[in-house]
């Protein structure tokens, strides 16, 4: 092929597309996966008495309006969800324990080891930190709400009432943790239901409690492999569904679900342009031959 101006333009298009491949390089590595020292919380629901002290501490630490109906157990009558003004809520389970006691579970962001929200965020407003918390940068979020679409636990909440709305969720008290303090909720918990520490240690602790009390506990740590693992871990003596923890969550890290599609991108970018150019060359040649033979068929096309 003679290198003329036309050919150069075609090459330019291919090179341009290849350049775009550089931009679109995708890798999960940039979502910092939790390091060995990443923190977590073990929730032993058999110890929770439903005092909702954690709700009050959370509201104070995040300067939110205090929890609704403080000190009134009537609040458990309806199913509550976290909201832009309540990053954690305690729910009463639908099933009593074998010993006849009420069971409760605290809900908040699970701080996934490999969070769907952070990997899917187009402006890195949500970011997984090496210490464990999934943090939110208020100055980046453009409000596409994709985090709400992908979160398997339904955690991110949006300020729909605002004209400059933001996503709101539990921060795992990342600011307090940076100062060496535990998350506010774990600090006030009077019954020892919330234990803050390294996730790896807490997982061992959770399993030890199950092994040493095999009659008492359900033989599962919720959060060990839900969505590929979460920083918050739960153990219980009633089925986890009865504590309104979502059942049937995929066991693999959510970003993995989109890996195949993302890894196809560089291939399309590098293979499509030469393939299409090849087809163009064939069809052009066909037309030229047809014109030379004077059949005039090229104008008819293949309708």
């Amino acid at each position: 092929m003679k290198l003329n101006r036309r050919t150069l333009f075609k090459l330019g298009a291919v090179a341009g597309a290849a350049g775009a491949a550089g931009i679109a390089t995708t890798s999960r590595a940039s979502v910092a996966s939790a390091s060995k020292g990443a923190r977590g919380v073990l929730v032993d629901t058999t110890r929770c008495v439903g005092c909702r002290g954690c709700e009050a501490a959370c509201a104070e630490a995040n300067t939110l309006a205090g929890p609704e109906m403080p000190g009134d157990d009537a609040v458990f009558a309806s199913k509550r969800a976290t909201s832009p003004t309540a990053f954690t809520v305690v729910q009463k389970g639908t099933q009593k324990s074998p010993t006849g006691e009420d069971r409760f579970a605290k809900m908040q962001c699970m701080h996934c080891v490999e969070p769907a929200c952070a990997s899917g965020c187009v402006v890195k407003a949500l970011e997984k930190t090496a210490d464990g918390p999934v943090v939110y940068h208020t100055d980046r979020c453009l409000g596409c709400r994709y985090c709400m679409i992908v979160c398997p636990f339904g955690v991110p909440k949006y300020e729909f009432a605002s004209v400059t709305p933001l996503v709101k969720k539990c921060t795992f008290c990342a600011g307090r943790q940076a100062q060496g303090l535990p998350p506010a909720c774990t600090e006030v918990c009077p019954s020892g239901a919330l234990q803050f520490g390294k996730r790896a240690d807490l997982l061992e602790e959770a399993k030890t409690r199950i092994y040493t009390n095999p009659e008492k506990y359900v033989h599962k740590v919720y959060g060990e492999d839900e969505a590929g693992g979460t920083s918050w871990l739960y153990i219980s003596d009633v089925p986890f569904e009865s504590l309104t923890l979502p059942a049937g969550i995929e066991k693999k890290p959510y970003p993995e679900l989109a890996d195949g599609a993302l890894s196809a991108v560089p291939f399309v970018i590098t293979l499509w342009p030469p393939l299409l150019m090849g087809m163009y060359t064939f069809s052009k040649r066909r037309d030229e031959v047809a014109a030379a033979e004077g059949t005039g068929k090229q104008e008819e096309g293949h309708v």
């Binding site: 995708t26 979502v31 899917g120 890195k124 453009l142 599609a261």
Partner: peptide, 27 residues
């Protein structure tokens, strides 16, 4: 539809979320 549409360009030069499907769609 976006909550803060004036931040739409952030994905291109400020804080590109290169692991996001939406990043590729945006470009």
């Amino acid at each position: 539809d976006l909550g803060q549409p004036w931040r739409l360009p952030y994905q291109f030069f400020l804080t590109p979320g290169t692991t996001a499907v939406m990043y590729e769609v945006g470009w």
